[in-house]
């Protein structure tokens, strides 16, 4: 028969475990957020100068539009990698 003290110890341990699981989930979410956010900044920096040049090119020649749009999205790979990392963190 378990004494009152033992029952309490078990309860405290269970609460600790719950808190740990919750903080692990929270850290995962923070990691996922950082992955998308930081890579998003990276992509933005990359697209900044390409975008400016692309607008210039399109102003010169409207037929460049398709190609310019394509060049502009080239650095988006970085943020997609971040997104994939975040998805794997959250769902696997």
């Amino acid at each position: 028969m378990a004494s009152g003290a033992e029952t309490m110890a078990v309860e405290v341990a269970a609460q600790n475990l719950e808190a740990m699981a919750a903080s692990a989930a929270g850290l995962k979410a923070i990691g996922a957020g950082l992955a998308v956010g930081l890579t998003g900044i990276g992509s933005g920096l990359g697209e900044m100068s390409i975008g400016a040049a692309a607008v210039g090119a399109v102003a010169e020649d409207k037929e460049m539009f398709g190609l310019a749009l394509l060049f502009t999205v080239l650095p988006e790979t970085i943020v997609i990698f971040g997104l994939v990392v975040a998805l794997l963190l959250l769902f696997s």
């Binding site: 790979t77 997609i80 997104l83 994939v84 998805l87």
Partner: peptide, 11 residues
Amino acid sequence: LSYTRLIAVGL
């Protein structure tokens, strides 16, 4: 890995 965009962009 670039092909993972097929799912990531979709998601």
